[in-house]
Nucleic acid binder design. Structure first.
Lengths: 198, 198
DNA sequence: ATATGTATCTCGCTC
DNA sequence: GAGCGAGGTACATAT
């Protein structure tokens, strides 16, 4: 629906959207989107499973502890997409692919042949991307893009959960200059791993 | 436009979307969205400023180093929203508001009256939400929602950049049970700060 | 352009 | 449902 309207949101946060012409999308999974003339992200939204009620010129969407109220001024047009498809994209060059690449050929990236490898190794406070045993404990954090200081920090938080000797690695196609310096200070080794060409 | 089509994306990553009926939105800021029958996030998208070219039944969107190719099978309908509004929402209960609340009345949350307060205090590796001086250095990380272990870690990374004595705080409306345990271990103090009612 | 952090993040997964 | 992390995150902002 394309309509002149205003929107009020009340839930985790709260917001108002001034009256204007917006695109309102109500999907078969009962999610609700209100889009403005710019940006990829919607101005307002409601996750799947919301209950929608229409009361005269007011549309109310309720979802657990969140509510959106649309006050309609004028409906410009309405469309009902038939047989809307629900396929997902097939994505390549994800972090998962990089993990598989390293695990399938660890000696190329580590310089030794480990006695044990565990993917998504869980410890108390979260999961390590790749855990490797070889004369000690090797913790590898994999990133699909450029590694940053935050990623180094995320890696370091796991180190106290492994006995010495333990070694920390960031594996990614790139790394920021600041992260290079930071990781050097903290004794983190960077492993360059590249995405497969298409 | 609502159309039966397939989509190929090539850029930072790469993806294919199987043929189906999708909602295609092309905005005045030249951003492009392809929406499926579920989810708030689009199946494929292109940020603002993309160049769009139509070549028979093929739509190509180019944006710096990214490209989307839409192969049209059948156009079900097309609409041209007139005078699409570009207003932004006015948001309340943001992190910024919580920061302002603490800064305007620090003694209530800290238990003392500081000699100096700096918001968004920059150090080498990033910015601290609130920096307070009072018989030492107090570093406060503010979260608008529930604080987690990751937030505690994010806070701890700043501590080496301040001389002793220094103190770490998380300020948020809530905190996860695991984060309670983790922060206790690390000597982080939790400050409960609540959002203003609407 | 690089870097850093927030988000009503969303979404998927595990416990 | 809670908790945690990935994301083509998007988006704003500071250097």
């Amino acid at each position: 629906m394309y309509a002149k309207c205003s929107v009020i949101y009340e839930g985790r946060a709260s917001s108002t959207l001034p009256t204007g012409n917006y695109l309102i999308i109500y999907k078969p999974d009962f999610s609700l989107l209100i889009h403005g003339a710019s940006q990829v992200s919607p101005r307002n939204y409601q996750g799947p499973g919301s209950e929608l009620a229409i009361n005269g010129t007011t549309i109310i969407s309720n979802n657990k502890s969140e509510a959106i109220t649309i006050q309609l001024d004028k409906i410009h047009w309405v469309q009902h997409p038939n047989e809307w498809s629900d396929n997902n994209i097939v994505l390549r060059r994800s972090e998962k692919e990089l993990v598989a690449k390293i695990v399938s050929n660890p000696s190329e990236y580590l310089g030794f042949t480990p006695s044990k490898i565990i993917v998504e190794h869980r410890v108390e406070i979260g999961a390590v991307d790749i855990y490797v045993e070889h004369e000690g404990h090797h913790i590898i954090e994999v990133k699909r893009g450029k590694a940053t200081i935050s990623h180094c920090v995320q890696l370091l938080k796991y180190m106290p959960y492994f006995p010495m000797p333990s070694f920390a690695y960031i594996a990614s196609p790139g790394i920021s200059q600041k992260a290079v310096k930071y990781s050097k200070d903290k004794g983190i080794k960077w492993i360059k791993v590249e995405h497969e060409a298409t």
